[in-house]
Write a protein that binds this DNA or RNA. Sequence first.
DNA 1: TCAAACATGTAACAAGTTACATGATTTG
DNA 2: CAAATCATGTAACTTGTTACATGTTTGA
Lengths: 183, 183
Amino acid sequence: MALEHAILVSLSERAAAGSELTRRFDASIGYFWTATHQQIYRVLAKMERSGWVSVQVVPQVDRPAKKEYAVTPAGREELRRWIAEPTTSDPVRSDIGVKLRGASLGDRAAVLDDVRRLREEHTKRHSLYEYLAGRDFPDPGALTGADLDIYLVLRGGLLVEQFWIQWLTEYLDAHDTTKDSHR
Amino acid sequence: MALEHAILVSLSERAAAGSELTRRFDASIGYFWTATHQQIYRVLAKMERSGWVSVQVVPQVDRPAKKEYAVTPAGREELRRWIAEPTTSDPVRSDIGVKLRGASLGDRAAVLDDVRRLREEHTKRHSLYEYLAGRDFPDPGALTGADLDIYLVLRGGLLVEQFWIQWLTEYLDAHDTTKDSHR
DNA sequence: TCAAACATGTAACAAGTTACATGATTTG
DNA sequence: CAAATCATGTAACTTGTTACATGTTTGA
């Protein structure tokens, strides 16, 4: 299970409540791991029982109180242990990959529309990442340590989006030039 | 759920038993969807109850009998329906992405070793796909219909492997030139 | 005949998804 | 005071993983 470890990484950078963690998973950590708030709250409760994180209720001036979670020494130890462990490649799962393969068994025109829409989405995300890279890392060559890591993971996000754009474009080009949109 | 639909695509190409499907998921379909035999048998049973596939027990001369599954008209209809449905991008989940981000909280040298090992794996898979492409699709420009689709999905597999090799190489280069392997 | 490979499964569990629920506080 | 937002959760369900179990047939 990597969700627990992704949370440990995020909390190590800065203590946070479940809602704040959810926002982080929608953004930076989300390049390579996603989670909904329901999952995060459940796992946080479990991690507290395991003693990997501690909680402190923080009353707020202008907001409802929140539970701020911080990594404990046991949590840091667990994270070290997990990081040193050999990684197995996660299986790839992509609906669109299955649809592209089976397109001749359904409505080809609908698949092509779908592909155009997805390519648009990935293009937008790619632009966003480029913007973030330019804004937060104007001089990548100067980075070291944790900052360098954060930058390199953002690079991974950029490269994944590039992959999608390239693949979907190849698909569209191949099916536009061969006029077999009718099967 | 796309496993059911991935099975429908595979069975549409040719009827098969669970063990044969498992082998296909380890190979071609597996570029973008994976499944173990336990999952496949469970889902096949469910699909039979739904009427999407039919079974025929085939006694074999030199092997134990197998249950051959074939797509029914209802299954074909369901596949058409699913293919026409708009696709939502599947969430990305990658252990190594989380580890790269948190590397400064653990043993950096171990992470670098891990990255080298993973890059090696992806390089091998890339070579395999290149071999398959050259063997099965010597003249991609001439392809149409289902054959073209199968080729384009293989292209997707190749491009994913390229992404991995490039990203992991960037990571290694960045951490080799900045000598901060000690945190 | 006994080990290996083939084919099919069960059971228990872990992880992820979807839909809904609750109370606090702020803003119009 | 009503609607919107924030923060936290529960419950039911689906999907995926891990470990084990069973019978068949071939080949050493």
